[in-house]
C-alpha cells in the first residue's frame, strides 16, 4: 500500500536520507525506530510532500506519491500527526478538529467523525471552545491525533506522539492507537520510546544515519539482543 523505495533526501548539502526502502501494508502498524538525527522525521516530511526526495520513489496505492503537491496528500487518505503537534494554537479545539476535515474527501462525514473523536477523547468535548494553546501537552496530543482522524485516513503517520508526555498518558495514547488500527487504519509510527512502540506494532524498521539498519517483526526485534542493547538499555527486562 505504501512503498518507499531507495529514497534519498537532503537539506541543502546535508544528506539526511541515503536510500531508504520500506513498506506498510493495509491494516499494519509499522514502527520506525532510531536515534535522533537518523532521518525519521525527514522520511515523514517526504511522505507528506513537504520535502521532495532527491532520488528514489514513494508509491501509494499503486500510484506515485512524490509528485503530488503537499496539500493534496491528505485527499489521498494519508494524514499526519506531526512532530511537536503543530496545532493552530490561537484557534479553538473544535476549529482545529474541523480543519482536519478540510479536504473534500472528509467533508461529508465531518459531523460523524467529530462525534467519533469526542467519544475517543471525551476530554476534548469539554474543552471544545477553548483556545488550543491553553491545553496541557497531553490534551494537545489528543487534539493532534483527533485532527488527523478527522480526515478519515487510510494511513496515519505519527511522529513522536509520546514526546514529553507522562508514562501513564503515553499508555492511554497507545491504547487509542491500537483501537484506531482495529477500525482498519494503517499506522506508521515514529518513536523514541522503543519498548512501547514495539509492543504496539506488528513490524518495525531500524533507521540509522539515513539508512535502514534492520527490520523485522516487532516480536523478533524485541527479543533481538542487539536491539535490546542499543535501544532498550542494560536495564531493560
Amino acid at each position: 500500500m505504501l512503498e518507499v523505495r531507495g529514497v534519498e533526501a537532503a537539506y541543502g548539502p546535508f544528506l539526511a536520507l541515503s536510500g531508504v526502502t520500506l513498506t506498510a501494508r493495509p491494516g499494519e502498524i509499522v514502527a520506525l525506530l532510531g536515534p535522533n538525527g537518523a532521518g525519521k522525521t525527514t522520511l515523514i516530511r517526504c511522505i507528506t510532500g513537504l520535502l521532495r526526495p532527491r532520488a528514489g520513489g514513494i508509491r501509494w496505492e499503486d500510484a506515485p506519491l512524490d509528485r503530488v503537491p503537499a496539500h493534496a496528500i491528505v485527499e489521498r487518505g494519508i494524514a499526519v500527526v506531526p512532530e511537536g503537534r503543530r496545532l493552530f494554537g490561537a484557534m479553538t479545539v473544535e476549529e482545529n478538529l474541523e480543519l482536519g476535515a478540510f479536504v473534500p474527501r472528509a467533508r461529508p462525514q465531518r459531523a460523524a467523525r467529530l462525534e467519533h473523536v469526542y467519544t475517543i477523547f471525551p476530554m476534548l468535548r469539554e474543552r471544545r471552545r477553548q483556545i488550543t494553546r491553553a491545553l496541557s501537552g497531553g490534551q494537545q496530543q489528543m487534539v493532534a491525533i483527533g485532527r488527523a482522524l478527522m480526515a478519515g485516513p487510510k494511513l496515519l503517520l505519527l511522529d513522536e506522539p509520546s514526546l514529553g508526555l507522562a508514562p501513564r498518558l503515553v499508555e492511554s495514547i497507545f491504547d487509542v492507537l491500537r483501537e484506531i488500527n482495529r477500525s482498519g487504519v494503517s499506522i506508521l509510527l515514529v518513536e523514541q520510546n522503543v519498548q512501547a512502540a514495539l509492543t504496539l506494532s506488528h513490524r518495525a524498521y531500524l533507521l540509522e544515519a539515513g539508512r535502514v539498519a534492520g527490520e523485522g517483526s516487532a516480536a523478533a526485534l524485541l527479543d533481538d539482543p542487539r536491539v535490546r542493547r542499543a535501544y532498550l538499555g542494560p536495564l531493560a527486562r
Binding site: V74, P82, F88, R147
Partner: peptide, 16 residues
C-alpha cells in the same frame, strides 16, 4: 487563519 499561524501545518491538514 491556520495558514497565518503555521503554513506547514496547514499544508499537512490539506489546505492549499
Amino acid at each position: 487563519r491556520a495558514t497565518a499561524e503555521d503554513w506547514e501545518a496547514a499544508l499537512m491538514t490539506g489546505i492549499d
